[in-house]
């Protein structure tokens, strides 16, 4: 019987799509576990170095490193971390929306913006935008990125900061809250801001002893700090990507299931109607004879 042939093919194609989304969901779930582990493993380092930097911001160093000195802001540098691939729900678009809001604020204040992007999606977005200049880019770092992969991008920004081309540096990436929630965050890297301290440091005038000398140690430490924050952002963004993809693919599979159910219902109704019609035709024919 040729009833509802289109409907049947449609159900078939949706079933195929569902198979794909289900497979992607499972792949993302297992990848998420791995990327999450990596994220948790690197957290202590970035937390500890963050703590040292906090202490440092409260010290009274004789040598004023340029990373610690506030300047008048005329131009800002941002490092944006995004995923390389799509199909991960609103992860990237939420992030870009947040950036856009910030960009508009900066534009109002008459501040220009330079961008370094990590990840294909961010590159595509910012090259299409005429408000900003992209001065550095890297992508396709895989699921286990290495610190060396992003040093180039960071160096571009740090050099720009040293030379006075930019006066502030911000890092923008997704923060992994839990599997369901990823929060886009903007963090100011340079100049280093003195946050509130959780613990009590002596309030009197104090400074570190630097070995061998302040400049060398601080250069090393501050560069490390920036690198570790951006790296942590990257690793966290990876975990976010997998989590978001898993959730997006799960809802896609569920939606496909609902769609199939509805179509099946329509198909059954059409078939039933066709049969009823045929019977009534036969009955009518018999009655006429």
């Amino acid at each position: 019987m040729a009833v509802g042939k289109e409907i049947r093919t449609k159900i078939g194609s949706i079933k195929n799509t569902q198979k794909i989304t289900r497979a992607m969901e499972m792949v993302a779930a297992s990848k998420m576990r791995k990327t999450k582990e990596r994220m948790l493993a690197t957290r202590p380092y970035s937390q500890k170095i963050g703590k040292i930097i906090k202490h440092l911001a409260h010290a009274n160093p004789e040598y004023k490193h340029s990373f610690l000195v506030k300047r008048d802001v005329k131009r800002i540098g941002i490092i944006v971390v995004s995923s390389d691939r799509g199909l991960c729900g609103g992860l990237n678009s939420n992030l870009f929306r947040k950036v856009l809001g910030q960009l508009i604020q900066w534009e109002k204040a008459g501040v220009e913006v330079d961008v370094c992007t990590i990840g294909t999606k961010a590159y595509g977005f910012f090259t299409g935008l005429n408000k900003t200049t992209v001065i550095g880019h890297t992508a396709k770092l895989g699921d286990s990125p290495h610190l060396n992969d992003i040093i180039g991008v960071i160096k571009v920004m740090l050099d720009a900061y040293y030379s006075g081309q930019i006066d502030e540096l911000h890092a923008i990436s997704n923060e992994f809250v839990n599997t369901m929630t990823q929060r886009p965050t903007i963090e100011q890297l340079l100049p280093i801001v003195a946050h509130e301290l959780d613990e009590q440091l002596s309030s009197r005038h104090w400074d570190y002893i630097y070995e061998p000398d302040a400049k060398e140690v601080l250069d090393h430490l501050l560069t490390r700090y920036i690198e570790s924050i951006v790296y942590q952002g990257l690793v966290e963004n990876n975990a976010c990507e997998q989590a978001a993809r898993m959730v997006a693919m799960k809802s896609a599979s569920d939606n496909a299931g609902n769609l199939i159910k509805e179509l099946q219902l329509i198909y059954n109704k059409a078939r039933q109607a066709a049969i009823t019609q045929e019977i009534s035709e036969i009955v009518a024919g018999a009655a006429a004879v």
């Binding site: 570190y208 002893i209 070995e211 140690v217």
Partner: peptide, 11 residues
């Protein structure tokens, strides 16, 4: 390094 050492940073 013993407890109550003066603040110090080094490589």
């Amino acid at each position: 390094i013993t407890p109550r050492h003066a603040p110090l940073i080094t490589r």
